[in-house]
Amino acid sequence: MSDLTSSERRRLEKLLGMGQGYVLTFSDRTFGEFFDEYRVGIDAERYKARGTSKANRMRTFWEIDGNHVVGRVIEGLIKYGRDKRCLPDDATQVADCQTIAQRLLVDQPVPELGALSANAEERDFEVVAQHIREAIEKNQPEAALDRLHTFVIKFVRIACEPHGIDVSRDKPLHSVFGEYVRALRAAGHLESVMAERILKSGISVLESFNDVRNNQSLAHDNPILNYEESLLIFNHVAASIRFIKSLETRIRAPARDEGWADDDVPF
């Protein structure tokens, strides 16, 4: 649920003209169409707990959906209101509600989203990473599972290269990652048994990811995985990648101290 304060709700209701059950100039049809763009089925029964008016469904939406999607919808409503010239003339009031939206948008559905950036200067890698981030910004993790799989393959292969691990294309991703974990352990880069076990669990996770990519993503003509499990996969993968990036930075620090150039390492 969003953490809108009562004061913020009052300011938003005033901006959106919700006093008589309306929201801006929306009809029931256009209201539903607007929310469809944000993957919110505002006509569903769960949004009618307070009543069926547009304003009451909006209030319920604020109560049961998360900060990020609520922030995106508020931003979209402000843009809609400007385009339709149906917002109050008070610029301060509009700016205040934009600030509310920005506060909510800080709360990402994938907190470690920033870790999903390319670890090598390859255009196709950057494009894949960009598509992934855009899908999360739109709150559509299930639509990018196939690209996340591609991203992980590229990321793991690049991470393995400095450790002398064969990353031929015919070797499964989970096998490559297993060799990577063993190399980290053998070189003494992991300080705790728990960290090693967490990484080892990633071997079976990546093996399962192949099945998700092939049978539950847009890589093929599949019924795609549900939102909640897709988000779980994204969060698990992003947290693991953030750790690996941090670890590789620490590993290569002595090389920089000995005069290696940043261009000599792949991160």
Rank of each mutant, 00 (worst) to 15 (best):
L206F: 15
P88Q: 07
G178T: 00
L4V: 03
A159D: 01
E33P: 03
Y180H: 11
I132Y: 07
I233F: 07
Y47I: 06
T52F: 11
R242A: 15
R213Q: 09
D221P: 00
R256N: 06
N119D: 06
L12Y: 11
R169E: 14
M18V: 09
G178L: 04
Y38Q: 05
L247A: 04
R182E: 12
N119E: 03
N235K: 14
A238L: 07
Y22D: 15
D89K: 14
I153P: 00
K84N: 04
G17S: 10
R182G: 01
V70W: 13
V73W: 08
F61W: 05
E196D: 08
D166W: 06
I136M: 10
L145I: 04
K138A: 05
H236A: 15
G66Q: 12
R133E: 02
W260S: 00
A186D: 14
Y22K: 13
Q102W: 10
I251C: 07
G259Q: 08
R82I: 03
E63G: 05
P111C: 01
D107R: 01
A186M: 04
K84V: 01
E248D: 13
D89Q: 13
I233S: 00
T25M: 08
A91T: 14
F177A: 02
T5Y: 04
G114A: 15
E63L: 15
S168M: 05
V205D: 08
R147L: 11
N119C: 04
I78C: 08
R72L: 15
H163V: 02
S117E: 12
G188H: 06
M58C: 01
E126I: 06
A253W: 09
P254G: 01
G178H: 04
I132E: 10
V94D: 01
A115F: 13
A238Q: 11
E248I: 00
E33Q: 11
V176F: 01
N210R: 15
A120M: 02
L87Q: 08
E45L: 03
V156Y: 03
R46L: 10
S7Q: 12
F155G: 02
V152H: 07
D166E: 14
T60G: 00
F31Q: 04
G19N: 11
E229D: 13
R242Q: 15
L116K: 03
G164L: 02
V152C: 10
